[in-house]
Design a protein around this nucleic acid. Sequence first.
DNA 1: AACCTATAATGAACTTCATTCATTATATTT
DNA 2: AAATATAATGAATGAAGTTCATTATAGGTT
Lengths: 233, 233
Amino acid sequence: MTSVTPRRPVSRLSRERRIADIMAAGREVFREKGYEDAPLSDIAEKANVVEGSIYRYFDNKRDLLVKVIEVWYEGMLADYQEQLSGIRGTRNRLRYMIWRHLKTIHDEPALCNLMFQFLRSGKDYSKTGVFNLNRNYTRQTLDIISEGVRKGELRGDVSLRLVRDMIYGCVEHTTWAYLRGEADFDVEKTADDVVELVLSGLLVRYTGSPTGPDIATRLENAVEKLEAMTEKP
Amino acid sequence: MTSVTPRRPVSRLSRERRIADIMAAGREVFREKGYEDAPLSDIAEKANVVEGSIYRYFDNKRDLLVKVIEVWYEGMLADYQEQLSGIRGTRNRLRYMIWRHLKTIHDEPALCNLMFQFLRSGKDYSKTGVFNLNRNYTRQTLDIISEGVRKGELRGDVSLRLVRDMIYGCVEHTTWAYLRGEADFDVEKTADDVVELVLSGLLVRYTGSPTGPDIATRLENAVEKLEAMTEKP
DNA sequence: AACCTATAATGAACTTCATTCATTATATTT
DNA sequence: AAATATAATGAATGAAGTTCATTATAGGTT
């Protein structure tokens, strides 16, 4: 007499719903265990699906990861342009972009780690949707710099790409200990510090007379602050 | 009739020699295929050893990687202090440190990738020898900055840690496309650009005539008062 | 030179996963 | 109610890391 293991009840859902379920489960498990230590069986279980079923909707494990990160990224970057439109002044706008990056890392360290470790270093990264999202996002930063240059506040003789690399490189380096779970960091203070350092640089400012950055610019910045305050409630 | 597969000749070497062989093979294979796509069987074959033998000398695959990177790192950082002692001036010394980092990445992109991707993001990284090597190495950079501050050339009101993160973050961000095999970069020019940007910052340098009382500061303070008034209660 | 002994080295077995695919079940259409 | 399309299953496959009982050998001892 052979005992037959009872087949699990098969619940048939719409393609969209299944995909959503699997991706939600994937996000959870990946967030909790990382990529390599997250068995597909865990994801399948959490999604109420058998392992093999995942392959109907995703090419492989990595494909699932990529799509999970992609959807997360889209949601995350959905509103930055709207937010930014309410902020005036080069310094404030730049700070917002940096602050946002820091806050994202602070809120979702695990997913950021996955993004840094498994997406961005992949050979196919520049063909990824995440790459393009990021591209547009950092382009915004470059636009802010460009505008600063046009207004005469910022130097025009520096490669924009390098400035972008400096800003985001600095932000990420700063957050590594946090990403490894070793130390916390203050989002607000770090944002302030990074902006200050990027804008002012390391060299001492005045060589002879105590003038500092030119007065017209500083007045304009002050006015922009007032302007920003009265923008929208 | 059962055919017996002939046992391979067993060559007995000294512990040190075997370890060296395995690590050499590991470095080669890891460099060529990365970490995940490098089967232990490849390494074993190249080292003239059976897979199981690797486990006599290394806890596991990751342990092998860590030790391979560690030895490489040691060799790489062996002479920087000597070199640096021959270089004078804050700017030049800083440039040397940055140049070195860039050159390492340019010469060994694959190993750098492994270091960035699999060592530095690991939970145990700060207990690694590589961590300490890096620590001492970047401390050198901080010392250069400190000396610059003492000599009155650099600002003293910026967190040294942040400066370090800015420098190395910028360098690495700049090299990512190269690390993905997408584009080359000019070590010399990049070194120049990074030093320049770190030292001078983005703000335009005021070179006009000296002014009297600091009007701008007073206005800024006034605006900050206004700003504070409207802050959330 | 023959023997001993510590330990280097082997190779097969084990385990864990990702991945495939032939089979089965179910919702929808005819 | 039957036909059809396709969602879902679960067992099988295979690759790769890891373990370990067994075997062989270099170097020292008698």
